[in-house]
Amino acid sequence: MNNRERLLEVRRFFERYTDEANPKTLEDLLEYLSTIGDTSKLAKKSVKDDIQALNNSGFEVQDELEKNGLAKKYWHSARLFEIHELRMMVDAIVAAKFISEDVTEEIVEKLQMLTSIPEAKTLQSIIKTPKKKHGHIPYHIDRIQRAIHERKAISFQYTDVVGFDVTKRTFPLRRDGERYVVNPIDLHWNHEQYYLIGIDESIGEVRNYRVDRIVNSEIVEDGTIRPKHHLPDDYYQKSFNMYNGSDEQIVLSVDERVLPVIFDKLGEDVSVSEHGERFLIRFDAAVSDGFIYWLLSLGSQVEVVEPLTLRDHMKTTIEKMATTYENTSIHSSIE
Protein backbone atom coordinates (compact mmCIF):
# COMPACT_ATOMS: atom_id res chain seq x y z
CA MET A 1 0.00 0.00 0.00
CA ASN A 2 1.68 3.18 -1.19
CA ASN A 3 1.20 6.63 0.38
CA ARG A 4 -1.58 7.65 -2.01
CA GLU A 5 -3.54 4.44 -1.43
CA ARG A 6 -3.07 4.80 2.33
CA LEU A 7 -4.39 8.37 2.29
CA LEU A 8 -7.53 7.26 0.47
CA GLU A 9 -8.07 4.48 3.02
CA VAL A 10 -7.56 6.88 5.93
CA ARG A 11 -10.22 9.13 4.44
CA ARG A 12 -12.57 6.15 3.93
CA PHE A 13 -12.04 5.07 7.54
CA PHE A 14 -13.06 8.44 8.96
CA GLU A 15 -15.91 8.81 6.47
CA ARG A 16 -17.52 5.42 7.11
CA TYR A 17 -16.62 4.51 10.68
CA THR A 18 -16.50 7.73 12.68
CA ASP A 19 -18.80 10.52 13.72
CA GLU A 20 -19.09 12.78 16.76
CA ALA A 21 -20.69 10.00 18.80
CA ASN A 22 -18.21 7.38 17.54
CA PRO A 23 -14.66 8.80 17.61
CA LYS A 24 -11.67 6.49 17.01
CA THR A 25 -8.06 6.36 18.17
CA LEU A 26 -4.93 6.13 16.03
CA GLU A 27 -4.69 2.49 17.17
CA ASP A 28 -8.17 1.87 15.71
CA LEU A 29 -7.05 3.44 12.45
CA LEU A 30 -3.84 1.39 12.33
CA GLU A 31 -5.80 -1.79 12.99
CA TYR A 32 -8.13 -0.93 10.09
CA LEU A 33 -5.21 -0.25 7.76
CA SER A 34 -3.59 -3.56 8.75
CA THR A 35 -6.59 -5.41 7.31
CA ILE A 36 -5.84 -3.84 3.93
CA GLY A 37 -2.06 -3.97 3.64
CA ASP A 38 1.23 -4.37 5.47
CA THR A 39 1.53 -1.74 8.20
CA SER A 40 4.44 -3.25 10.13
CA LYS A 41 6.69 -0.34 9.16
CA LEU A 42 4.01 2.35 9.34
CA ALA A 43 4.74 5.02 11.97
CA LYS A 44 2.06 6.93 13.83
CA LYS A 45 3.60 10.15 12.59
CA SER A 46 2.84 9.15 9.00
CA VAL A 47 -0.81 8.58 9.90
CA LYS A 48 -0.96 11.92 11.69
CA ASP A 49 0.49 13.55 8.57
CA ASP A 50 -2.29 11.88 6.56
CA ILE A 51 -4.89 13.36 8.91
CA GLN A 52 -3.31 16.80 8.56
CA ALA A 53 -3.29 16.42 4.77
CA LEU A 54 -7.02 15.60 4.83
CA ASN A 55 -7.75 18.67 6.95
CA ASN A 56 -5.71 20.84 4.60
CA SER A 57 -7.74 19.54 1.66
CA GLY A 58 -11.05 20.49 3.30
CA PHE A 59 -11.97 17.04 4.62
CA GLU A 60 -12.40 17.94 8.27
CA VAL A 61 -11.14 15.54 10.95
CA GLN A 62 -11.63 16.78 14.48
CA ASP A 63 -9.88 15.56 17.58
CA GLU A 64 -10.31 15.85 21.31
CA LEU A 65 -7.63 16.85 23.77
CA GLU A 66 -5.84 14.07 25.58
CA LYS A 67 -7.01 13.82 29.18
CA ASN A 68 -6.57 11.48 32.13
CA GLY A 69 -4.05 9.49 30.17
CA LEU A 70 -6.62 8.37 27.57
CA ALA A 71 -5.62 8.17 23.93
CA LYS A 72 -6.64 11.05 21.68
CA LYS A 73 -9.69 10.30 19.54
CA TYR A 74 -10.56 11.55 16.07
CA TRP A 75 -13.72 11.77 13.96
CA HIS A 76 -14.94 13.19 10.67
CA SER A 77 -17.33 16.15 10.92
CA ALA A 78 -18.91 18.70 8.58
CA ARG A 79 -20.74 16.19 6.41
CA LEU A 80 -22.83 17.29 3.44
CA PHE A 81 -26.06 16.41 5.30
CA GLU A 82 -26.85 16.39 9.00
CA ILE A 83 -28.28 13.11 10.30
CA HIS A 84 -31.72 14.68 10.88
CA GLU A 85 -31.74 15.89 7.25
CA LEU A 86 -30.96 12.38 6.01
CA ARG A 87 -33.69 10.97 8.25
CA MET A 88 -36.25 13.34 6.74
CA MET A 89 -35.20 12.28 3.24
CA VAL A 90 -35.43 8.59 4.13
CA ASP A 91 -38.90 9.09 5.62
CA ALA A 92 -40.03 11.00 2.53
CA ILE A 93 -38.79 8.23 0.20
CA VAL A 94 -40.38 5.48 2.30
CA ALA A 95 -43.68 7.39 2.56
CA ALA A 96 -43.94 8.03 -1.20
CA LYS A 97 -46.40 5.49 -2.63
CA PHE A 98 -45.24 5.94 -6.21
CA ILE A 99 -41.71 4.71 -5.41
CA SER A 100 -41.68 0.92 -5.61
CA GLU A 101 -40.16 -1.30 -2.90
CA ASP A 102 -37.03 -2.15 -4.88
CA VAL A 103 -36.30 1.49 -5.82
CA THR A 104 -37.02 2.61 -2.23
CA GLU A 105 -34.43 0.15 -0.94
CA GLU A 106 -31.84 1.33 -3.47
CA ILE A 107 -32.31 5.02 -2.65
CA VAL A 108 -32.25 4.47 1.12
CA GLU A 109 -29.00 2.50 0.81
CA LYS A 110 -27.46 5.39 -1.16
CA LEU A 111 -28.58 7.89 1.49
CA GLN A 112 -27.03 5.70 4.19
CA MET A 113 -23.72 5.98 2.35
CA LEU A 114 -23.73 9.72 3.07
CA THR A 115 -23.03 9.20 6.75
CA SER A 116 -21.05 6.87 9.00
CA ILE A 117 -21.97 3.20 9.37
CA PRO A 118 -23.05 3.68 13.04
CA GLU A 119 -25.35 6.57 12.12
CA ALA A 120 -26.59 4.78 8.97
CA LYS A 121 -28.03 2.08 11.22
CA THR A 122 -30.36 4.69 12.72
CA LEU A 123 -31.78 5.59 9.29
CA GLN A 124 -34.48 2.93 9.40
CA SER A 125 -37.87 4.52 8.87
CA ILE A 126 -40.81 3.38 11.00
CA ILE A 127 -43.24 4.53 8.31
CA LYS A 128 -45.14 1.71 6.60
CA THR A 129 -46.52 2.55 3.17
CA PRO A 130 -48.18 0.12 0.72
CA LYS A 131 -46.00 -0.02 -2.38
CA LYS A 132 -45.62 -1.99 -5.57
CA LYS A 133 -42.72 -4.44 -5.42
CA HIS A 134 -41.26 -3.23 -8.71
CA GLY A 135 -41.76 -0.09 -10.78
CA HIS A 136 -40.45 2.02 -13.64
CA ILE A 137 -41.57 5.46 -12.44
CA PRO A 138 -38.03 6.85 -11.90
CA TYR A 139 -37.23 6.08 -15.55
CA HIS A 140 -40.41 7.82 -16.75
CA ILE A 141 -39.56 10.85 -14.59
CA ASP A 142 -36.03 10.96 -16.05
CA ARG A 143 -37.34 10.84 -19.65
CA ILE A 144 -39.98 13.50 -18.96
CA GLN A 145 -37.42 15.83 -17.39
CA ARG A 146 -35.06 15.33 -20.32
CA ALA A 147 -37.88 15.97 -22.79
CA ILE A 148 -38.81 19.22 -20.99
CA HIS A 149 -35.17 20.37 -21.00
CA GLU A 150 -34.61 19.41 -24.65
CA ARG A 151 -38.05 20.67 -25.75
CA LYS A 152 -39.06 17.33 -27.20
CA ALA A 153 -42.32 15.40 -26.99
CA ILE A 154 -42.80 12.31 -24.85
CA SER A 155 -44.61 9.24 -26.16
CA PHE A 156 -46.25 6.60 -23.95
CA GLN A 157 -49.16 4.24 -23.37
CA TYR A 158 -51.57 4.92 -20.53
CA THR A 159 -53.47 2.51 -18.31
CA ASP A 160 -57.21 2.86 -17.73
CA VAL A 161 -59.05 2.87 -14.41
CA VAL A 162 -61.80 0.49 -15.54
CA GLY A 163 -61.72 -3.06 -16.90
CA PHE A 164 -59.61 -4.58 -14.11
CA ASP A 165 -58.49 -8.16 -14.82
CA VAL A 166 -58.79 -10.04 -11.52
CA THR A 167 -56.58 -12.92 -12.68
CA LYS A 168 -53.72 -10.77 -14.01
CA ARG A 169 -54.40 -7.99 -11.47
CA THR A 170 -53.90 -5.39 -14.19
CA PHE A 171 -55.88 -2.61 -15.86
CA PRO A 172 -56.11 -2.43 -19.67
CA LEU A 173 -54.45 0.27 -21.74
CA ARG A 174 -56.50 3.26 -22.83
CA ARG A 175 -57.19 3.83 -26.53
CA ASP A 176 -56.55 0.10 -27.08
CA GLY A 177 -52.86 0.71 -26.50
CA GLU A 178 -52.53 3.63 -28.92
CA ARG A 179 -49.61 5.82 -27.89
CA TYR A 180 -50.08 9.31 -26.50
CA VAL A 181 -47.76 12.04 -27.80
CA VAL A 182 -47.47 14.89 -25.32
CA ASN A 183 -45.46 18.10 -25.30
CA PRO A 184 -44.46 18.15 -21.60
CA ILE A 185 -44.75 21.41 -19.67
CA ASP A 186 -44.15 20.38 -16.08
CA LEU A 187 -43.85 17.56 -13.56
CA HIS A 188 -46.01 18.18 -10.52
CA TRP A 189 -46.25 16.46 -7.14
CA ASN A 190 -49.79 16.22 -5.74
CA HIS A 191 -51.38 13.88 -3.17
CA GLU A 192 -48.35 11.57 -3.05
CA GLN A 193 -48.27 11.16 -6.84
CA TYR A 194 -46.26 12.63 -9.69
CA TYR A 195 -48.21 14.12 -12.60
CA LEU A 196 -47.05 14.94 -16.11
CA ILE A 197 -48.70 18.14 -17.32
CA GLY A 198 -48.49 18.71 -21.02
CA ILE A 199 -50.25 19.36 -24.29
CA ASP A 200 -51.77 16.27 -25.89
CA GLU A 201 -50.72 16.82 -29.50
CA SER A 202 -53.71 14.89 -30.86
CA ILE A 203 -56.18 17.44 -29.45
CA GLY A 204 -53.97 20.45 -28.72
CA GLU A 205 -55.14 20.77 -25.11
CA VAL A 206 -53.41 20.71 -21.72
CA ARG A 207 -53.93 17.41 -19.89
CA ASN A 208 -52.66 15.86 -16.65
CA TYR A 209 -51.34 12.29 -16.53
CA ARG A 210 -50.44 10.26 -13.46
CA VAL A 211 -46.88 9.06 -13.97
CA ASP A 212 -47.56 5.74 -12.22
CA ARG A 213 -50.09 4.92 -14.96
CA ILE A 214 -47.64 5.65 -17.80
CA VAL A 215 -46.29 2.60 -19.64
CA ASN A 216 -43.44 2.26 -22.17
CA SER A 217 -42.43 5.94 -22.26
CA GLU A 218 -40.07 7.21 -24.95
CA ILE A 219 -38.67 10.59 -25.97
CA VAL A 220 -39.86 11.45 -29.47
CA GLU A 221 -36.75 11.84 -31.61
CA ASP A 222 -38.33 13.42 -34.71
CA GLY A 223 -36.01 16.42 -34.94
CA THR A 224 -38.80 18.84 -33.97
CA ILE A 225 -38.13 21.41 -31.25
CA ARG A 226 -41.42 21.97 -29.44
CA PRO A 227 -42.47 25.48 -28.38
CA LYS A 228 -41.99 26.21 -24.69
CA HIS A 229 -45.30 26.63 -22.87
CA HIS A 230 -46.08 28.10 -19.46
CA LEU A 231 -49.03 27.24 -17.24
CA PRO A 232 -51.24 30.03 -15.89
CA ASP A 233 -50.21 31.19 -12.41
CA ASP A 234 -53.45 29.86 -10.91
CA TYR A 235 -53.39 26.51 -12.73
CA TYR A 236 -52.61 24.40 -9.67
CA GLN A 237 -54.93 26.37 -7.43
CA LYS A 238 -57.86 25.73 -9.79
CA SER A 239 -56.98 22.08 -10.41
CA PHE A 240 -58.39 19.74 -7.77
CA ASN A 241 -56.58 16.41 -7.33
CA MET A 242 -55.10 17.06 -10.80
CA TYR A 243 -58.38 16.40 -12.66
CA ASN A 244 -59.03 18.45 -15.79
CA GLY A 245 -62.31 20.35 -15.95
CA SER A 246 -64.07 23.52 -17.08
CA ASP A 247 -63.48 26.74 -15.14
CA GLU A 248 -66.41 27.98 -13.08
CA GLN A 249 -66.95 30.64 -10.44
CA ILE A 250 -67.82 28.77 -7.24
CA VAL A 251 -69.67 29.98 -4.15
CA LEU A 252 -69.68 27.73 -1.08
CA SER A 253 -71.44 28.12 2.24
CA VAL A 254 -69.13 26.62 4.86
CA ASP A 255 -69.07 25.94 8.57
CA GLU A 256 -66.41 27.84 10.53
CA ARG A 257 -64.76 24.55 11.56
CA VAL A 258 -63.88 23.75 7.98
CA LEU A 259 -62.22 27.13 7.23
CA PRO A 260 -58.69 25.82 7.95
CA VAL A 261 -59.24 23.06 5.37
CA ILE A 262 -60.49 25.62 2.84
CA PHE A 263 -57.47 27.86 3.43
CA ASP A 264 -55.07 24.90 3.13
CA LYS A 265 -56.55 24.05 -0.26
CA LEU A 266 -57.32 27.48 -1.72
CA GLY A 267 -54.91 29.76 0.10
CA GLU A 268 -55.65 32.40 2.72
CA ASP A 269 -56.29 35.11 0.10
CA VAL A 270 -59.53 33.44 -1.02
CA SER A 271 -62.66 35.66 -0.79
CA VAL A 272 -64.49 35.14 2.55
CA SER A 273 -67.60 36.87 3.89
CA GLU A 274 -69.85 36.19 6.85
CA HIS A 275 -73.35 34.85 6.15
CA GLY A 276 -75.29 34.28 9.34
CA GLU A 277 -73.59 31.54 11.32
CA ARG A 278 -71.64 30.35 8.27
CA PHE A 279 -69.22 31.87 5.75
CA LEU A 280 -69.42 32.35 1.99
CA ILE A 281 -66.30 31.38 0.03
CA ARG A 282 -65.90 32.62 -3.56
CA PHE A 283 -63.24 31.34 -5.96
CA ASP A 284 -62.63 29.98 -9.45
CA ALA A 285 -62.04 26.26 -9.94
CA ALA A 286 -61.96 23.59 -12.62
CA VAL A 287 -65.16 21.63 -12.04
CA SER A 288 -64.21 17.98 -12.33
CA ASP A 289 -64.65 14.64 -10.62
CA GLY A 290 -61.68 15.52 -8.41
CA PHE A 291 -63.35 18.75 -7.30
CA ILE A 292 -66.62 16.94 -6.56
CA TYR A 293 -64.82 14.23 -4.56
CA TRP A 294 -63.16 16.97 -2.52
CA LEU A 295 -66.50 18.64 -1.78
CA LEU A 296 -68.06 15.30 -0.78
CA SER A 297 -65.17 14.62 1.61
CA LEU A 298 -66.17 17.75 3.58
CA GLY A 299 -69.71 16.44 4.17
CA SER A 300 -72.43 18.73 5.49
CA GLN A 301 -69.89 21.33 6.59
CA VAL A 302 -69.88 22.60 2.99
CA GLU A 303 -72.84 23.47 0.76
CA VAL A 304 -72.60 24.48 -2.91
CA VAL A 305 -74.51 27.71 -3.50
CA GLU A 306 -73.40 28.47 -7.06
CA PRO A 307 -73.37 27.53 -9.86
CA LEU A 308 -76.78 25.88 -9.82
CA THR A 309 -75.61 23.21 -12.28
CA LEU A 310 -72.96 22.07 -9.79
CA ARG A 311 -75.45 22.25 -6.91
CA ASP A 312 -77.85 20.02 -8.82
CA HIS A 313 -75.05 17.63 -9.71
CA MET A 314 -74.00 17.37 -6.06
CA LYS A 315 -77.59 16.67 -5.04
CA THR A 316 -77.93 13.90 -7.66
CA THR A 317 -74.60 12.35 -6.64
CA ILE A 318 -75.54 12.33 -2.95
CA GLU A 319 -78.95 10.81 -3.72
CA LYS A 320 -77.26 8.02 -5.70
CA MET A 321 -74.95 7.34 -2.76
CA ALA A 322 -77.90 7.20 -0.39
CA THR A 323 -79.74 4.82 -2.72
CA THR A 324 -76.74 2.47 -2.72
CA TYR A 325 -76.99 2.07 1.05
CA GLU A 326 -80.78 1.89 1.06
CA ASN A 327 -80.74 -1.18 -1.18
CA THR A 328 -80.48 -4.68 0.26
CA SER A 329 -77.03 -5.31 1.66
CA ILE A 330 -74.82 -7.83 -0.12
CA HIS A 331 -73.20 -8.65 3.22
CA SER A 332 -75.13 -11.89 3.68
CA SER A 333 -74.14 -13.16 0.23
CA ILE A 334 -70.39 -12.87 0.88
CA GLU A 335 -70.29 -14.49 4.30
Rank of each mutant, 00 (worst) to 15 (best):
N2M: 00
E5N: 07
E5M: 03
E9P: 00
V10C: 04
F14P: 09
R16P: 09
N22C: 08
L29M: 05
Y32A: 07
T35D: 15
K41A: 13
K41S: 15
K41T: 13
K44S: 14
I51R: 06
N56V: 08
G58Q: 01
L65C: 08
L65Y: 09
G69Y: 10
G69I: 07
K73M: 01
W75Q: 01
R79G: 04
I83F: 11
L86S: 02
V90Y: 06
V90F: 07
A92C: 09
A96D: 11
F98T: 11
F98C: 12
F98D: 10
E101N: 13
D102W: 04
I107K: 05
I107L: 13
L111V: 05
Q112A: 03
K121F: 00
T122H: 08
S125A: 08
S125I: 08
H134Y: 15
H134T: 15
G135R: 08
P138E: 01
I141Y: 09
D142M: 14
R143Y: 13
I144P: 10
I144C: 10
A147K: 12
K152N: 04
S155H: 00
T159I: 09
K168M: 05
R169F: 04
L173M: 06
R174Q: 10
H188S: 02
Y195P: 01
G198L: 01
E201Y: 04
S202D: 09
I203T: 11
G204S: 10
E205K: 15
V206K: 05
R213H: 02
S217D: 05
E218D: 03
K228D: 12
H229N: 03
H230A: 14
Q237P: 07
Q237T: 15
Q237C: 07
M242N: 01
Y243I: 01
N244S: 14
G245T: 01
E248S: 10
R257G: 15
R278V: 08
F279R: 08
F279I: 05
R282G: 11
A285C: 10
V287N: 09
V287R: 11
G290R: 03
L296G: 02
S297F: 07
Q301W: 12
V302A: 06
V302H: 07
V302R: 11
E303P: 03
V305P: 10
L308S: 13
L308W: 12
L310K: 11
M314R: 03
K315L: 05
E319F: 09
A322L: 11
N327S: 04
T328E: 04
S329M: 01
S329N: 01
I334R: 08
E335F: 05
